[in-house]
Nucleic acid binder design. Sequence first.
RNA 1: GCCCAGAUAGCUCAGUUGGUAGAGCAAGGGACUGAAAAUCCCUGUGUCCUUGGUUCAAUUCCGAGUCUGGGCA
Length: 304
Amino acid sequence: MDNKKVYVISGPTAVGKSAVAIQLAKKIDGEIVNCDSVQLYKYMDIGSAKPSEAELNEVPHHLFSIVNPDYKMTVATYQKLAFAIIDNILERGKTPIVVGGTGLYLNSIIYEMDFAGDSKDSERRKELEEMAEKMGNKYMHDYLSGIDPETASKIHPNNIRKVVRAIEAYEAGDGIKSLDTCPMNDRYDFEFYALTMEREWLYDRINRRVISLVKAGLIEEVRKLLAMGYTVELPSMKAIGYKEIAAYLAGETDKLEAVKLLMRNTRRYAKRQITWLKRYDDVKWIEIQKGDTIGDVVDRMLEG
RNA sequence: GCCCAGAUAGCUCAGUUGGUAGAGCAAGGGACUGAAAAUCCCUGUGUCCUUGGUUCAAUUCCGAGUCUGGGCA
C-alpha cells in the first residue's frame, strides 16, 4: 500500500471525539476504528456512550460491540484486531481513523509493543492474588524485588495488581518492558490528535452527559446486563457507569448518591486520560473553544 | 423592632487557654506493556466577614456594623 496514513483521535471522555471522527471520516472517506475498551462490549451501549445507531450508519465503524461482556479482553487481543482492521481499510484504499480514550490500547497501535508471547493461564495469577491476600503487599513487592529488581523499583508496593502481573510476566520469561524502550510503530504514518477543552467546561459537559445517560435508560441497561448473568466481578462491569449503577441496584447506595459518584468518577477518569496524553510528544493538541462547530474542529485538524 | 446563634479552604465544619490555621468531601499533579473506564502514588487550596479598641502581637478577647439562620413580638 502506498498510502499508510492513519488518523488517531483521542482526548478525555465527553470531549466530543465521536462526532468529530464521523465528520472527518465523511470528509476524507475514512472509516472509524474504535479504541475504547468499553465500547468493544456488546450490550454496553448507553453507559459507554457509544455512537448512536444513526451515527454508526453514517460512516463505517469497526470494533464496536464485538465481544460479550464476559469475554476476557486484553491489550494483546485488541492490538491484533486493530491491526487487522487498519490494514484491511488501507488495502481498500480508505483511511483509518482510530478513535478512543483508552491510553494503553492507543499505545499498542502507536508503539512497537510486542505481545507475541502466549497469554498466560489465569491459574498462576489467581495463586499470586491469594498469596498477596495472605502475605500482604510488601511481601509480594519484596518477592518481585528478589527476582526482577528493576521492574520492582518502578512499581509502588501498594499497586498489587501490577506487582502480581510483573511476577507473572517474569515467570513466563517475558518480563515487563517499559515504554521508553519502545520505538514508534513505523508501519503507518500517524496523524495523532488529542482534543481538549477548558477543564471547567469539560466537567460541565461530563455532568450533563451523566444525567442524559441516566435519562436514556442506563439503569435499565445495567439491570439487563445483571439479569443476563454479567456480574459486577467482571472487568467490563467495573467500568464507570456500570459499577455505580450496579451498586445502586444492589441497594448499597441511593440513586442520587450513585449519580453523584458516577459524575465524580467520570471527571477523575477524564483527568487521568489527560495526564496520559501529555506523555506523547508527537500528539497535536486541539483545544475546542466555545462556539466551535464540529466542522471547525475538523478543518483545524486538516490544516494541521 | 427585640433576643439568641453563626460568619474560617470550592462545600460542610473543627480549631487557635492571643503567636496568621486543619479534617472530610470536592479539587490539583503524577505513574502506567497482556484487567486499563482498571490499578496505584503525591499535594494543599485561606483578606479566618468589615471596622474600631485592648495588646509587643487579634482570626481568637471587647465594642460597633453587615449578612445568614432561629426564636419572640
